[in-house]
């Protein structure tokens, strides 16, 4: 198995090659990289691949350094919620 098909986002099975080539092509930030590839948008909410996606964007020089912000936005819920529970919370 070679490095290009190496998976970075385990939930959505986004590969290293896909991330590096997207970052190169669009010269994008970590956040745009996430939206374009779906890396970090799966079941775990990006907890596992977040730092790797950020590093790829940084290594391409395409991530605008946001020293005072976390580059990949966090959105609720940070744990998957079942529809049943979602209903209960909104009551």
């Amino acid at each position: 198995m070679n490095e290009n098909v190496m998976i970075i986002c385990r939930c959505e099975e986004v590969t290293y090659h896909e991330l590096v080539s997207t970052a190169t092509k669009y010269k994008c930030s970590a956040r745009e990289l996430k939206l374009r590839t779906r890396a970090g948008m799966g079941y775990c909410g990006g907890r596992t691949c977040r730092t790797m996606v950020e590093k790829i964007a940084q290594s391409m020089g395409t991530n605008t350094p946001t020293e005072t912000n976390i580059s990949l936005k966090v959105q609720p819920p940070i744990r998957p919620v079942s529809f049943e529970n979602l209903g209960r919370i909104s009551k």
């Binding site: 909410g45 907890r47 730092t51 020293e67 005072t68 936005k73 966090v74 959105q75 609720p76 940070i78």
Partner: peptide
Amino acid sequence: YPLVELAALAGCPFFL
């Protein structure tokens, strides 16, 4: 790495 998700949701300012 520090697990800061909830602080981010609360709207806390961050520093790298």
